[in-house]
Design a protein around this nucleic acid. Structure first.
Lengths: 196, 196
DNA sequence: TCAACTCGTTGACATAGGTTAAGAGATTTC
DNA sequence: GAAATCTCTTAACCTATGTCAACGAGTTGA
């Protein structure tokens, strides 16, 4: 696949949701920059402003936070056709509280706040797309929050593998533990229990 | 205070963030309906579509979810100048998973999806206001989520009363427990511990 | 190819918070 | 103003998960 092919993934994605003209497709394609990232690389980091919004074309990423005890907490794993970033930081310029790290070699389309503003001026329709995207993020997070405080770890684990079958092949187990909000030893013990 | 005064709270709120003309103020004021709600009343409920978005002018509310074990979980308490609703349901018409209940007699300005769409057509500027509102909601929820999985209940309790001083006067303790994700007995025990 | 890491597992013990039950004040309701 | 209901507290016991330490199997790197 070449650059044009990768960008077509994005414009197809948008077209499916909004119906955009060929001209708009070109504007969008030229507003985004194609980047590839190596395993373990950090695309943005906690403490610095996040000036990147990412549309994943290929690969796997994790978005995580390090708390003041030094513990990591995975907020989400990202796969192809996902938007990832730290919206708060991207829009306000304040330091991010999140890290975006590559788990499997990734190809993504990225944009910075200035370019995004220009793009939105040229294709105002996209306002709606991004609003829907935020809304979706919010309702996903809300569900996750409610699940986290109302169900125990085994239930959350089963829910995760049902919702994302194959995730155990893509992501090391200690990071799944971190996503579930428990320690690797606990997940290990729990899986043993579940086998009964 | 009369109806016009209450609506002025909203238009002032918006003017502070967007700079709107007198004419726009009038359109906004006439798009919202003033309602008052009695203590314990439910403004919308789980299982039914939520066709109301609320701007609180006076009073206290709680937004909560009942899980499949019948346990209630408070997502947030709402105070004057807050927007409350279930965005997912409001925008898609799908059944809500949340309940909005009045804790103290409340006066609010409400709008339904159709009226809101009309309003947005008349005053497109507001798109931005609502996008900022969602973004803010998202980053608040994200912070809350990370705190919930990285800190214990006493830390979360202290954080809450520091962030919302006076909340203990406004909200019964068992609902604060529910907000913290613990049982009333645990909060009671915890407070005793903290006195040392 | 040897050394150093990384990852998952196991076991023993510690602790936060859940569960159940009871009782004492407040507050609401009729 | 008596009865019913709600709210908070306490206590005893239970359970899920954390913590620490050790071990073996892979994997990575010099």
């Amino acid at each position: 696949m070449n650059e044009a092919d990768y960008k077509k993934v994005l414009t197809d994605y948008i077209d499916k949701r909004l119906n955009i003209s060929e001209e708009e497709k070109e504007i969008i394609a030229s507003s985004y920059t194609l980047k590839s990232f190596q395993k373990k690389e950090h695309i943005f980091s906690q403490g610095k402003p996040c000036s990147i919004e990412t549309f994943v074309v290929k690969g796997t990423l994790r978005l995580y936070h390090v708390d003041n005890k030094g513990q990591e907490h995975v907020l989400l794993f990202a796969f192809p056709e996902w938007w990832v970033g730290d919206m708060a930081s991207f829009n306000t310029g304040e330091p991010s509280s999140l890290n975006l790290q590559v788990l499997e070699e990734t190809i993504a389309l990225v944009i910075d706040p200035t370019e995004k503003e220009v793009l939105l001026k040229k294709v105002p329709k996209l306002e709606r797309l991004f609003r829907l995207m935020i809304q979706k993020n919010l309702s996903v997070l809300q569900k996750r929050f409610l699940l986290t405080i109302s169900a125990n770890a085994s239930y959350r684990y089963l829910e995760l593998i049902e919702r994302s079958p194959g995730i155990e092949q893509l992501v090391p187990q200690h990071q799944i533990a971190s996503y579930l909000g428990i320690h690797p030893e606990s997940l290990s013990r729990m899986k043993k229990q579940l086998l009964k």
